[in-house]
Design a protein around this nucleic acid. Sequence first.
DNA 1: CGTGCTTTTGAAAATCATCAAGTATAGTGG
DNA 2: CCACTATACTTGATGATTTTCAAAAGCACG
Lengths: 246, 246
Amino acid sequence: MKATEQKARAEDQRAGHAHDLDPCASCDARTISVCNAIPDRDLSRLADIAHETMIETGRTFITEGDHADYFYNITAGTARLYKLLPDGRRQITGFAHAGDFLGLAISTAYAFSAEAIEPVRICRFSRQDLRRLLDDFPEMEKRLLDAASNELVAAQEQMLLLGRKTARERLASFLLRQDRNDQDGPHLYLRMTRSDIADYLGLTIETVSRTFTRLRKEGLIDIPEPSMINIQNRAALTQLAEGLAG
Amino acid sequence: MKATEQKARAEDQRAGHAHDLDPCASCDARTISVCNAIPDRDLSRLADIAHETMIETGRTFITEGDHADYFYNITAGTARLYKLLPDGRRQITGFAHAGDFLGLAISTAYAFSAEAIEPVRICRFSRQDLRRLLDDFPEMEKRLLDAASNELVAAQEQMLLLGRKTARERLASFLLRQDRNDQDGPHLYLRMTRSDIADYLGLTIETVSRTFTRLRKEGLIDIPEPSMINIQNRAALTQLAEGLAG
DNA sequence: CGTGCTTTTGAAAATCATCAAGTATAGTGG
DNA sequence: CCACTATACTTGATGATTTTCAAAAGCACG
């Protein structure tokens, strides 16, 4: 075991994660990630090339344009993925959660940056190591293809939102999507700021705020605090998200 | 050989394509498509499950929401891929050319519709047949993953365009991208209408037309006829596409 | 030479952005 | 415990880009 790996292991134990000889076997995210394609008896192969690290809130761990030497698997937390224009305009292309992988880009450079918006735990693989692993476990390649296909579908849905939906429709779509993904009980907790939401939906923070207020006044949602939303009228919100309401 | 396949073969010969015993071996699109992952000696395996068809201009051959039973490989022509909102608003998510594959969606339904905007030749595979082929030729799965990764990068770039670029910047980006893809000599020939361009860039046809006119008056481009564009000042257009110019 | 379609151009309207305060909320240090 | 600061969020007034509505011009086709 390399020193860097020992360090990562130690960090992880401080974070309160018990480990036997095979950290991948006890990984919370395994069953929901591409790693599940590796059979139990071969998990040590995976652990040998995985490098687990904690990323504190606000830290950028992938930078658009950098040489894409590593592949990442998020095992806890949330990251925002974004692209920048030279003058600072930002487009958030998605939010990554436990089970998501990043850095698939075949090209030599990352196509986006990734920054933790709450503490994130990542598993890092070098591209070479991953390539060898994929050669030995074709099932994992299938999983990656499935995951990439799903991301592509989500990206197409987002293009429809950005290109053709109004601010109200964008917010309605966003809330319903968040609600579907994050099942945190009756409330919907937004892990991102208004600024993140704006840059994700192609709007400004003012428009996001105003639109939330309007949806609240119309009784479609309730906002007990800025990052907590209750959906009050799901039917109306759904109609709105599909572009069927004023 | 099944009757339907004989019919397809016959159609194809009418279209002027010579065939030996193995149509995949003589396919113009093979070298630029995922089919290239199949070694020459196994091409008959591919040909056995492929069903080649001509699609006339204007015909929709994939409908969003339909059960995704088939996988398609475009071997000639151009198709527009789009999503619709119930009230008719349309977002074109891309244009597919020879070598592109469609219908990767893992989910049971197609996420978009596909319509020929000039005569298109497609190779159709049933999902089951393809699955078996992929199991036997892991290299093809790798190719699909590479292709999906590239599509994902393009989709993220398009999200930046739709969410954060002005009309001028969108048109500049569009023209440069088209120019990079279609190397038809000195001119850039647009295969799609203004309406298609508008629905691809999240604009209206009027805005597209006005913006083209303005770019022409400023000397960045020349428009000898509506579907033919000459880039006059590539540097300025590039600056504009990156958001660095007024 | 109409007829229908695409494209272009003009004027008015609307949505959303920008500019500008003002209000919460959380964290810090006295 | 209370200012004090920093940050996020909200709200208001104004403005600009883009859309909508409308019509004319250009082209292909029968």
